[in-house]
Design a protein around this nucleic acid. Structure first.
Length: 278
DNA sequence: TCCCAGGTCCTGA
DNA sequence: TCAGGACATGGG
């Protein structure tokens, strides 16, 4: 069991259910159980104490949950940049943190996410892991699996993926896995982020929005500002943009929020979705 | 039954 | 460069 005290600016529900990750599920007691980079854990927040039960050491989870970044300072800066809407958006999701996820996982997740809804995305990812990923182990009477590696996916045909019910996205995943393997073969050291970063837009099924999500969530480029249907809606509603003016939205985000545009996007994205549910 | 979902790709103008 | 349609699937 790992205990980490004096936790600030973290709300598990806001962090795990803001659409950045798809493999964490809430328990009846409000804790979350899930998997990251081959580790499985249950994470509970009691007051300002984080309690982690599972595999992985403290350093791993500190990094994954981005605990060493001062979100209070970032929030102050965002409010000073945009004092109209941002204070309300931050209040609605003050405990959001951007996780340090594995690049390959975010590539798979966000290719699947296109023109899809969050409950179905989670289902697709779980089926993909259970059917084609490596077994991690049993935890609290449940079995956990990693996502399939690029090598494993590259070996498959779209018909193999039919039980996963990915729809037309199955061929995108396979083509992207093949391309990933090609790039990796040409690398002297494994996992060179910058090389993959330069190649993202060439992956099959990766357009501007999916690429921006991969940059924000998989490369932790906090300046990346994904524009999806919700962001178009909020940019129109809050800032007066025409819904198809994505260039204008990008420029606004860059100029107004700068290096933390991605975090601003998460607060705004969460805010308009909570408003919509009311 | 219909609408929509954290879009991308292809085609034609 | 850009608008418009096709694309699989299933939750609400």
């Amino acid at each position: 069991m790992i205990y980490i005290d004096e936790i600030k600016d973290l709300n598990l529900r806001e962090t795990f259910e803001c659409g950045q990750c798809f493999r964490w599920n809430e328990e009846e007691d409000g804790s979350y159980t899930g998997t990251a980079m081959g580790r499985v854990a249950n994470i509970m927040l009691e007051g300002d104490r984080l309690i982690i039960d599972g595999s992985g050491d403290e350093n791993f989870w500190r990094n994954y949950l981005d605990l060493d970044r001062d979100y209070s300072e970032i929030k102050k800066r965002l409010v000073s940049c945009e004092p109209e809407i941002m204070p309300m958006a931050i209040e609605a999701g003050a405990g959001i943190r951007i996780l340090n996820q594995e690049l390959w996982e975010t590539v798979v997740d966000f290719i699947i996410s296109q023109n899809n809804n969050i409950p179905r995305i989670k289902g697709c990812i779980e089926r993909l892991a259970e059917n084609f990923g490596d077994y991690i182990g049993e935890f609290r009477n449940r079995e956990f699996y990693n996502l399939p590696s690029p090598k494993r996916l590259a070996e498959l045909k779209p018909s193999d993926l039919a039980p996963i019910r990915l729809g037309y996205r199955d061929k995108y995943l396979i083509e992207t896995a093949k391309r990933w393997m090609c790039i990796e073969q040409g690398l002297s050291e494994k996992g060179s982020l910058s090389v993959f970063s330069n190649e993202l837009s060439n992956f099959s099924g990766v357009g501007p929005k999916v690429e921006a999500c991969i940059r924000l969530f998989g490369i932790h480029d906090l300046s990346s500002f994904p524009i999806d249907v919700w962001v178009k809606r909020l940019m129109s509603r809050f800032y007066g943009f025409a819904e198809n003016d994505t260039k204008g939205m990008e420029r606004f985000a860059c100029e107004r929020f700068g290096e933390y545009a991605g975090l601003a996007q998460q607060y705004l994205f969460n805010y308009i979705r909570t408003l919509d549910k009311q």
